[in-house]
Simulated assay, not measured.
Amino acid sequence: MRDEDLTGRASTTGADALLAEIVSMERPARRRLLRLPGRALLGLAAAATAVAVIAPAMLSDNTISVAPQPGTSTSATAEPTARQILLAAAVAAEQAPASGDYWRYKGVTRWMLTDPTRNYVLEKARAGEQWLARRTGLQSWRIGQDLGVKPATPQDEAAWRAAGSPTSWRYPKDMKTENLFSVPHRPLEAAAGERTAERLRWKTVGDLAGESLTWKKMRAVPDEPETLRSYLEERIGRLDLTGSGMDVEEARKHILLRDCVDIISTLPASPETRASAYRILASLPAIRAEGETTDPLGRRGQSLSYQEEIEPGVFAEVRLVVDPSTGLLLSEVRANTTELADGRQAELRVSRSFQEIGWTDERPQLPTRRN
Results as ranks from 00 to 15, higher is better:
N62Q: 07
E21L: 11
A45L: 14
A192Y: 06
E311H: 12
V318M: 14
D223Q: 00
E309H: 11
Y306F: 09
A152S: 09
E347I: 10
A162S: 08
T12G: 07
E356T: 14
A162W: 09
S351V: 10
A67L: 03
M218H: 03
P154Y: 09
W141L: 05
E189H: 03
I357R: 15
P187E: 09
T337H: 11
P68S: 08
S65F: 07
A133T: 13
L297Y: 02
W111V: 13
K176T: 15
M175V: 10
A67F: 03
R83E: 01
S244D: 12
P222N: 10
G128W: 09
L42T: 04
A29L: 02
L87A: 11
P28K: 07
L348I: 03
A50N: 05
P271L: 04
A289G: 05
S230V: 11
S331H: 02
G148I: 12
Q95W: 02
Q307C: 07
A96T: 04
A316V: 06
R195H: 08
R31F: 14
A29I: 01
R186S: 13
T326L: 01
L241K: 06
E226W: 06
S265K: 06
G8Q: 03
T63G: 08
L200E: 04
D16W: 02
T266E: 05
W160I: 07
E250C: 07
Y278N: 00
E211T: 10
E250R: 08
E123C: 02
P312I: 15
P285V: 00
A89V: 01
G210H: 06
V91W: 00
L86M: 04
P151K: 08
S99D: 08
S244I: 11
Y120P: 02
R118S: 07
S230N: 11
S230A: 15
P166C: 15
W169Y: 12
D115I: 01
L19S: 03
A45K: 11
Q139P: 11
R30P: 00
A82P: 00
I22A: 06
A78F: 09
D262V: 09
D262E: 10
S165K: 11
A55Y: 01
K203Y: 08
R135S: 13
E311R: 15
A20C: 05
A46K: 13
Q355P: 15
A96W: 01
D174S: 11
G107K: 03
A90E: 00
E224P: 12
C260Q: 04
R170L: 08
A88F: 01
Y171V: 05
T196V: 11
R142L: 11
G148E: 13
T109E: 08
K176I: 14
S303N: 07
T136P: 01
P187S: 07
V318Q: 13
D323N: 06
R349P: 02
A275P: 01
T72A: 06
E290P: 01
R135E: 10
R344M: 07
V91M: 01
V333S: 05
G148A: 12
R370L: 08
K253T: 12
S353P: 01
W202M: 14
E339S: 14
E332R: 01
V314F: 03
D240M: 14
